[in-house]
């Protein structure tokens, strides 16, 4: 209960600010309409008219909430207008991309820790890869893969993996290197093989670092999947909803898709956090 009150306070403050901004941004259109019609409007009339415009600059919270309700609860999941349907499309690419990115990130980290040549060469490239704007490289990935006949889920997942492998590499390298000299000497006194040192010392020691990275990685994966939907003119997925919303000036639809993406991200990070808690507790490493 103690933690719920501050959260609700912040949410309330955001909603108040949001309503204020909606009145401010949408009033121009009301005044323009009134001037064109040659009538005077009172302030209370203006406020009323900023709340329910069809294409507002900034839709009011209740409009977005109504749109969310309409496109989730009131639509069948299989409907092209259901946000749950679109969310699932994006989610599947996110999860596949996250799996690829995490696997690749862990493999690279293991290589970096165990191989000097990889230690010197891989990290600069990994960092360089993250300095390229994803929006610039995404269309090229789509086009190149399309030309070799790969379409649909996989190209989006690869863009998503491109964003999510990096935090995993960084966190895993730090985690695998977290055992100190004493622990490593200890393994040496037992004449442990490098493989035993890895499985019994380095890998378990890296778990807290891995989970911290996974939380960043899963959120990055979702961003990657959405961005991957933009340049293809995709007709399915949250990215497609954002895109079609902006084509037709459907700001309410854009904001509903944005909010759905935010809820999805929060849920994914929450699930990773839950797995983290359970795993570390079972390992006896819970904080």
């Amino acid at each position: 209960m103690k933690s719920i009150l501050p959260i609700l306070t912040v949410v309330a403050a955001i909603i108040v600010l949001w309503y204020g901004a909606a009145v401010w941004l949408n009033s121009k259109w009301v005044y323009d309409q009134a001037a064109r019609a040659g009538v005077e409007v009172s302030f209370s009339e203006v406020v009323k008219q900023t709340m329910n415009q069809e294409r507002p600059k900034l839709p009011a919270p209740h409009q977005v909430a109504a749109e969310l309700w309409k496109t989730t609860v009131e639509k069948k999941i299989t409907s092209k207008r259901s946000l749950i349907f679109h969310s699932w499309i994006t989610l599947s690419a996110t999860l596949l991309g996250f799996a690829i990115g995490t696997g690749l990130g862990i493999l690279l980290a293991v290589g970096i820790v165990h191989n000097r040549a990889m230690d010197m060469s891989v990290m600069p490239w990994a960092i360089a890869s993250q300095t390229i704007p994803i929006i610039a490289i995404a269309p090229m990935i789509i086009v190149v893969l399309n030309s070799v006949g790969i379409q649909g889920l996989l190209p989006k997942a690869i863009i998503s993996a491109y964003l999510s492998f990096f935090p995993v590499v960084v966190g895993m390298v730090k985690g695998l290197r977290s055992p100190g000299m004493m622990e490593l000497d200890q393994m040496k006194t037992w004449n442990a093989s490098p493989a035993q040192t890895f499985w019994k010392l380095r890998l378990p020691a890296s778990m807290p670092y891995l989970f911290a990275s996974l939380k960043v990685g899963i959120a990055a994966s979702l961003v990657g999947a959405i961005v991957g939907e933009l340049p293809t003119g995709a007709i399915r997925g949250l990215g497609a909803r954002l895109l079609s919303g902006s084509y037709y000036g459907q700001t309410v639809q854009i904001w509903a898709a944005l909010l759905a993406a935010a809820i999805l991200a929060a849920g994914l990070v929450g699930i990773v956090g839950l797995i983290q808690r359970i795993t570390l507790r079972r390992m006896g490493m819970a904080q």
Partner: peptide, 16 residues
């Protein structure tokens, strides 16, 4: 494996 070595810190693995 002729010897056992005890370090200054116990060095127990926290996950075991």
């Amino acid at each position: 494996r002729a010897y056992g070595y005890v370090f200054q810190a116990a060095g127990l693995f926290p996950w075991r």
